[in-house]
Structures are given as structure tokens and as C-alpha cells.
Design a protein around this nucleic acid. Structure first.
Lengths: 255, 255
DNA sequence: ACAAAAGTGTTAACCGTACACCCATGA
DNA sequence: TCATGGGTGTACGGTTAACACTTTTGT
């Protein structure tokens, strides 16, 4: 990984464009799943107190995918995140100057940051409990929001989020999203709730289980989940070998 | 549409970055269909004689989609093209300087054009016979190539083309590609050949026809296609009203 | 007349959906 | 013992895939 320069906030406003590609940013929609709810990780800006997607910039000699990985790493503390580029947003109105962002008091004149930006959107799937939400230099706070309760965000970030969700809903049919969103061991009802939450519709318990098991990428453990009321459900985990074999042959999820 | 500056080639190398966003380009994969073959429109560079995808740059205050439309318009002479953004390519090796591009003799020093570029990929569907292939200022030639006979292209353009084709193959299931790739009136066997060519596999004649007609977006004309040997096939056209109604309800092509 | 392409219909296999019964557990 | 959630199996219906026969036209 390419090393990032250490800059103060004022330095960043004044001469960040010596290190980063101008007018190009990365925005990440980080999905998590907790207590039956689909969550996204959002940041709160210091100046306007408004919420936004975690984002960042691309170093002069950095791959855009690596920039996304770096941003994800910084906000969540995680490596090896499942990451997917989904769309690039290029409306000329996408500029901080037209949306009330303020420079630090001691920065005079124009800053590269107030220009119009094109942003490349990525979404990521992470295991909720492993994330350590960490604000960046622009932010007061970094926390999970229920996807259904996301507030009004800066710029076009609500639109970016919507597009990410659509993209995720399409990807759910050829990628086993549970692999990244759930803990290693999980129950079938938990997996089903995940799918129901992402797709926004109820699924038949029995047909769902049949479908999932028929793909042959799940391994049922001897253990059962203890502690809940009622009958203890089996625990499952993804079988990496079978999974990789299945993916090569083009996995199809007919949910 | 925003007006483009009129620059000589040398001026473009020297100060194009006053008008265009630096380090960001657009590349277009323009698909056509002719004589049973899927075609792409390619340009031949003046200096290296190598072939490449038609591309261009984004004006400071221009939407990236509009830039793509402008490029398409310039290379084909067509408006109202069906256009789809499919991926953004951000490898730091994507730089003309590392791939043997030469500046005009009178341009000294560094040019913005030799920097590393991020490029946003679009593909387009056009009616082959309506296209007037037009080279740009960098190119000697502009012509159609059979998708299976495309030569080695500059930079990562072969990879971009591959990704565009994958994206098209996915889109074929929820968009009636024949609408843009075929002439207004066409026969069912022609439509089938188009699908077979894009998908790269043979389809059953009878099942194909049933599927297509069952979507209710085709209108069969009284005329038949004359001139061929053997039995004259019916002509069809897309029924715009039925088509738009069907698209609203989410059209599915189970080919 | 014959070959080759086009129009149309039928059947069997498969898959998705709907649904019923039994078991385990805590209240 | 009852309510609730979990595990498993079966039957129906629709869709897809495989396939056969007839018609048209140029040679």
C-alpha cells in the first residue's frame, strides 16, 4: 500500500492536490447487519453537522480500488473487505462550494477541495461486530444507521446510497452476501432475515433453506445455537472450498 | 450542451487542462450489428498506428454522461443513443507516457495528457447502417471491427472492451437490445441471430419466438421480408407504447 | 422435386411456490 | 400444556426445454 502524506487540515485544504488527484473522490457505502436490520456506516461533518458517506481521495500513483480499500480500512479497522465498485457520479453540481462546506479559518483563497468532484462509488460488506467505527479528520462522529432511517445527507449522497442498495440487490443473486455480513457461525433463520432485509420482502422459511442448502456451499455444524427461547436452531458456516468451486462454475441464487 | 473550445492539437496538449478535468477521461464501447456479426467502432492512432476505443475528456462544467454523449455524437453522427455507464478503470499504469504516445514535435515539457488517467467506461448501442464513422483529431481512421477479430489495443482497452461485453450480456436480460441495434423493421431470425451473437450460444428458434412475442412489445407487420431465398419471414417492429408500459413494470427476458 | 428456411403446436422435465406435520423449548 | 420457533417432506402449477410437422420459395 502507498503511504499517505501526513497533513494538517489546513495543509490538506491548501496543498492536498500535490498528493491527490484533483476533482476525483471515492465514496463508500459500508453495509453491515445487526439485530435484523441492514445498516450503513455514516460520518458527521464537523462544520455543518450534516451526515455523509465515508469517502476520500486517490493518491497520484494509487489504484482507485486501493484508495477504496484504504478508506474502508481507516473507517472500520478491517482488512480483506468484500468490495464492489458500482457507479461513478459525475454531475457538475457535485461541488462542496455549492453545498455549504467551509474551509478552516486560516485558509485563504481557493482550495482544490471546493472544485466540482467526480466520485467513484463502492459498496462494501462487513461483519458488524468486527467494525470499530472511526471518524476521519473532517468528522465529529462515525456510526451505524439503519438503512430505513438514514437522514438527509450532503450533496447527492442519498442518491449514491440508493444506487448502492440497488446494486447490492442485484448482486445478491450471484454472490453469497451472508459470507461477509454475518459472523462465521450463523443460523438459517439469521441468514434468511438477512436476505429478507436486503430484498425488502418475506421469504418462505422452508423453500429458503432448500435453496441455500442446494447450492452446496454451506456446512452444518454439530452445534446448535443456544440461549434463545424455543427450539435451538443449527449453526452453519460457509465452506470455503465448496464455495470457491461453486463460484468458478457461476453460482446462481434463485431467491 | 456545453460548447467545446476550438484548439489545435498542440494547444490541446499544452493547455487542454484549462478546459478539461485533468486525469479523467471517458471511453466508449460502441456496439453495432451487421450481417450476423457484433461489431465495435475503433479508432486508429496517428502516431503508433495502434487501435483504440473512442474516447475523450470531460469539460470543467460538464456532466460525465453529457461528455459521453458528445463523444458518441462526434464519432457516429448520431443523437439519442442508448448509453450505459458500466465501469471506471483506475489503474495507476493507465498513462499515455508509459505506453508510447508521442506529443506533437513542437510541444515541449510535460503535458497534462501524459499523466496517469482514470477513465469512465460507457457502452452504446447503435444502428449500424445509420453510423457515419468519423475519426477524431488523434486518429487516422475510424471503422467497425468484428468483436471476435479485435486487434491488440492501446493501454487496457482490450480489458475495457471485455468488461463492456460482460455488462452488455447482463443487460440483455432486462433491456430489449434489438430496439437500438437493429433497423426499425426486422425479422425474427435477425433478432434471434443478434441474441445468439451477443450471448455466444445457439438458441431454439421456436422457443425464442415464443419468449419474444410473449413480452408483448413486438408488433408483427403485414409485410414480409422479400429478396431472400426460401420462405419469406414476417417483419416486426418494436411497439413503443407497449414497450414503455412493459418497462415500467420491469421487463424480464428469460432467454 | 428437393433443400433450406420459416411458421406453428405439443409434450415432458424441471423448478418455484404453497402448504402440513412433527419436534424442542421456555413460559 | 401451550405458544412459538425450528426441522423436514410433499404436491401442485407454471415455465422452460426438447422436439415434429407443415408451408413457402428458389434452384
Amino acid at each position: 500500500m502507498i503511504k499517505q502524506p501526513r497533513l494538517t487540515l489546513s495543509e490538506f485544504f491548501e496543498k492536498g492536490d500535490q498528493f491527490y488527484i484533483p476533482q476525483l473522490s471515492i465514496d463508500c457505502v459500508i453495509f453491515g447487519f445487526h439485530e435484523g436490520e441492514l445498516k450503513v456506516l455514516l460520518l458527521q461533518w464537523k462544520d455543518s453537522k450534516k451526515w455523509c458517506l465515508p469517502g476520500g481521495f486517490v493518491l497520484k500513483q494509487e489504484h482507485i480500488d486501493d484508495a477504496a480499500v484504504r478508506i474502508l480500512q481507516n473507517r472500520t479497522g478491517l482488512n480483506n473487505i468484500y468490495l464492489q465498485q458500482f457507479y461513478t457520479f459525475g454531475d457538475p453540481e457535485r461541488a462542496r462550494k455549492t453545498h455549504g462546506a467551509r474551509k478552516p479559518g486560516d485558509v485563504t483563497g481557493k482550495s482544490w477541495l471546493t472544485e466540482r468532484f467526480i466520485t467513484v462509488g463502492y459498496w462494501a460488506l462487513v461483519e458488524f461486530s468486527k467494525v470499530d467505527p472511526t471518524p476521519d479528520d473532517f468528522s465529529l462522529d462515525c456510526k451505524w444507521w439503519d438503512i430505513n432511517k438514514v437522514p438527509s445527507l450532503i450533496l447527492d449522497h442519498n442518491a449514491i446510497l440508493d444506487k448502492a442498495l440497488s446494486s447490492l440487490r442485484i448482486h445478491i443473486y450471484d454472490y453469497p452476501v451472508g459470507k461477509d455480513l454475518l459472523p462465521q457461525k450463523f443460523t438459517m433463520p439469521e441468514l434468511q432475515t438477512l436476505y429478507e432485509t436486503i430484498l425488502g420482502k418475506d421469504l418462505d422459511r422452508r423453500n429458503f433453506q432448500k435453496k441455500m442448502l442446494s447450492m452446496g456451499i454451506l456446512e452444518r455444524l454439530k452445534e446448535r445455537k443456544q440461549g434463545g427461547a424455543h427450539k435451538a436452531p443449527y449453526l452453519y458456516r460457509f465452506d470455503s472450498k465448496k464455495y470457491q468451486l461453486a463460484m468458478k462454475q457461476g453460482l446462481k441464487f434463485g431467491i
